[in-house]
Design a protein around this nucleic acid. Sequence first.
DNA 1: ACATAAAACGAACGGTCGTGCTATTATGGA
DNA 2: TCCATAATAGCACGACCGTTCGTTTTATGT
Lengths: 203, 203
Amino acid sequence: MSKGDTTRQAILERALSMSSVIGLEGISIGRLADDLALSKSGLFAHFRSKEALQLQVLEVAAQQFVDSVVRPALKEPRGEPRLRALFERWLVWARSQSLPGGCIFVSATMEMDDRPGPVRDALARYQQDWINVLATATRAGQESGAFRGELDPEQLAQEAYGLMLSYHLFARLLRDPQGEARARAGFEALLARAVGPARTPAK
Amino acid sequence: MSKGDTTRQAILERALSMSSVIGLEGISIGRLADDLALSKSGLFAHFRSKEALQLQVLEVAAQQFVDSVVRPALKEPRGEPRLRALFERWLVWARSQSLPGGCIFVSATMEMDDRPGPVRDALARYQQDWINVLATATRAGQESGAFRGELDPEQLAQEAYGLMLSYHLFARLLRDPQGEARARAGFEALLARAVGPARTPAK
DNA sequence: ACATAAAACGAACGGTCGTGCTATTATGGA
DNA sequence: TCCATAATAGCACGACCGTTCGTTTTATGT
């Protein structure tokens, strides 16, 4: 890896942790350069626009996410273990020390969901990928007979993601120490619904 | 209402819809003044700092939220109807045309949850109030016998809020037309769990 | 109608922003 | 070791930021 690539990686790493706190738009090239003892223009030369920097930050985050959440979880056996691994590893990811501001995809989503442009588009692709991982893992569980066939995988994915998002809010904003336990309890209930017999509440 | 109060209210209204799109921090006093055909300094004089403006924006949003979501829903009978009303009215609120960027509390939460200060503190109070509304409504349902006694109201509140948050993501970022239906389905399942017999999944 | 107070204005401040240019320094292959 | 090239620095730009100040316009109450 050449010298340029090395510093570029260092910049992206730092920009990632910075934007997990103050948002993708909040990254400032000047502050970033100061933090890394680089000149503003020297840093800027690596990316040729702030937008390119933002896109590469998201790319690095996506790589790390796949490496630390998706790939290991997909080694678990189909059905409950795999889904549980995805969920548990997401919790670990969301409070990893390399992301002092929590999951960057979560904060970036709420920040960019109404700002059209390439960054929003890339973000939507990453999020859709993650939803697809959850839905596909659910389908695999159905095929192996672990989950009910009538279960809608996208429904489970949306509900599961909801538990991760509310965990994010309870743990980060409200600093509620029970947030994590409740997120787990919610997920277990979700799995129970996926496994158990068709549940038609007595009307 | 004096002239000053009138324009102040107009400013806050506009700042609210602006920050639902570009965030609380993203509000710019200059742009706000242009939009309203006011001078920057004239507008600024109404608040004496940007932070004060942000706090008042949150306050206005909270008032509107109570008026259009909480208060009407609390007129519904205890138990399922009241909780359902809270949920349904939240969905309406989140896509109200006065909030072109979705629920401002959601976006502000992800934006400010790592930025200490009075704005973060106020936001946390408002969010906690909303959680308490959900939990209290749940407890009222328990007292009237509509919900199981072993049910943890805070657990239901966190899960319900999760459904709202993932709805926000699916509908706004992914533009998934089924996001709303899935949010409803998830909420119905949540209610069914709250009503139905104690559910101990076969271990 | 007038005096007084409230509200809005215009200009300017020091900063920071992203982004160009041009020069200088470091790196790595021949 | 030399040289082409890559990497970084320095400086300046126009734009916008929140904020202050002194002035002028407008509204309010008598």
